[in-house]
Amino acid sequence: MALKARAHQRVSNRLRHKVADRLDEGHDEDAATATGILISARDISLRLGRVQILENVAIRVRDGEILSLIGPNGAGKTSLVRVLLGLLPPTSGEIERRPRLRVGYVPQRLAIDPVLPLSVKRLMTLTARRPLAAVRAALAETGVAALLEAPVQALSGGEFQRVLLARALLREPQLLVLDEPVQGVDFAGEAALYELIGAIRERRRCGVLMVSHDLHTVMAATDRVICLNRHVCCAGGPASVGRDPEFVRLFGPRAAAALGVYAHHHNHAHDLAGAVVEPTDDAGERGAGADVAPRPEGDGGS
């Protein structure tokens, strides 16, 4: 029942996106606000020193949708997120944010030095004072209410990611930006975490921009996928991205096949293999290698 409703929601989301796409072609600002665009970036290029990090990237996140940003290591995913958050000025391009957009951010690789004594409670109120009740509620929402007084260095990978997620929720965000939210989390914990992110989106109707190099699991919960490798290789629904030849070239046939099987339980594996067989491209090789990066130890923390 709930599943059905969710599926329906996703379909209607996609319909809305189509409408929005058409409206946006005219660059109509009022229409953009009306169609629930939280943040929109066009023609983003970023050059650091002699290295071109991003090239003419366009990305847009809407109310209540989960947008997954995937790509191999070094594709510029985190740089794009930093540009969108206003932490890094792009070399060229424009970014529009909804006025007074509240963003909840979970950065990649937040390691807290053991020499800094920090409890979960103190981490929650790091940048702004918050009533204890709100802190407790946010921790409860991500299932880690019991860890309020724990030192952050004692948390497992999964617990820590949940605490960071609760931190982001404490700001009542309209947009959640999650950079590799399942890093350091084991497989079971990963599935639970994705489920939690999906549930948060349902409950709060906030937009979610999720960065991942892990293709296999991301897709199930996601509405749209943007595949980035310096430029936007392909974009669309999870299933269509998996069939995109550009995607297959980037990540290799095995990733694409796995993805195809995952998103579409019935078929398509041979279809993909047919479209693929050209492993001469080294980008494909690299992508495939990056895709099977070792997963650090850590428990699910549920």
């Binding site: 958050l85 932490l87 963003v103 951010y105 950065p107 920090l118 981490l123 790091l126 940048t127 700001r171």
Partner: peptide, 13 residues
């Protein structure tokens, strides 16, 4: 303190 823990996170907030 916020910048010490994570500069990007602090700036984003």
């Amino acid at each position: 303190l916020a910048v010490t823990v994570h500069e990007d996170l602090a700036r984003a907030e």
